[in-house]
């Protein structure tokens, strides 16, 4: 690692100030960032550790909405249970030690194309809350490792509408244990949303054809006539674009069955 300073602000305001320095970078749980730094693929001047920001911790349920502080760990979300599909997803990210450190804001800010949380946020129609604004999930994810966040902007919380029914199916990439294909299906009052991670060169995306079919008939058989185009799907040593496209449909069907 190149050397850097570490700052541990206690409030969002202090964190925002700390992020004002050139090449400062927010540090959530560090479960992706620290390995990246070890490879010397980044050289921040300063890491702003968010784990001591009390107002970014914790989970609160307000009616049908779940608000999760940005510095909340995967383990805490897994243990919460207010939004069972989301807790189940969190309980299967990485491994137990990673879940004790990794945070929801860290995952969403990184937007790894194979990460799990982006699928949950996009399918649920979550709102990403930052120190300056609120961003709808549909506007937030802008491609592989790319988000609507501005330089220095910090995700302080995420608001999830709790769907009537939801499920996440993850087909793991066996080495990294990220998603080779992960599909989150959420049945909301105004229709069904389906978000897919792991599969596309564009990062997490919504499978709108399936959403239409499932909004009419929320059963796996509603997908029968549909197919997913392998164009722009990822091909790597773990599977071809065609295989991933196939898995998207299989995992979507399983998610629907599990949710219904």
């Amino acid at each position: 690692m190149y050397d850097f300073d570490v700052e541990k602000p206690g409030t969002i305001a202090e964190a925002a100030t700390a992020m004002g320095v050139e090449d400062a970078q927010a540090l959530g749980g560090g479960q992706t960032l620290i390995p990246t730094l070890k490879q010397r693929l980044a050289s921040p001047s300063k890491l702003v550790s968010l784990s001591s920001v009390a107002e970014m911790q914790g989970i609160t349920k307000e009616g049908d909405t779940l608000r999760i502080g940005g510095a909340t760990t995967h383990a805490a979300v897994a243990a919460d249970g207010s939004y069972p599909a989301l807790s189940a997803l969190a309980s299967n990210i990485g491994d137990p030690a990673v879940r004790n450190r990794g945070t929801i804001a860290g995952s969403l800010a990184n937007n790894d194309p194979a990460a799990c949380y982006p699928a949950a946020a996009l399918a649920s129609g979550a709102t990403i809350i930052t120190n300056t604004r609120e961003i709808a999930a549909d506007d937030y994810f802008q491609g592989m490792f790319d988000t609507a966040l501005d330089e220095g902007e910090i995700i302080t919380a995420v608001k999830f509408p709790i769907p009537q029914a939801a499920n996440y199916q993850k087909f793991v990439q066996p080495a990294s244990r990220f998603a080779l294909v992960g599909v989150f299906v959420a049945k909301l009052a105004d229709g069904v949303r389906v978000a897919v991670t792991g599969a596309s060169n564009e990062g997490v995306f919504r499978w709108t054809e399936a959403e239409g079919a499932l909004s009419t008939d929320f059963s796996a058989s509603a997908l029968d006539g549909l197919s997913v185009s392998p164009d722009n799907m990822i091909t790597d040593l773990h599977g071809s674009a065609t295989y991933r496209a196939h898995l998207v449909k299989v995992m979507t069907g399983r998610a629907v069955t599990a949710a219904s």
Partner: peptide, 23 residues
């Protein structure tokens, strides 16, 4: 079932960490 060592046509090792080499 899971272990593979993959070099691309340029001789780059694609499975050079536990992120891609399945233990």
């Amino acid at each position: 079932l899971v272990e593979n060592t993959t070099y691309d046509e340029n001789g780059q090792l694609l499975s050079a960490s536990y992120m891609d080499y399945t233990m």
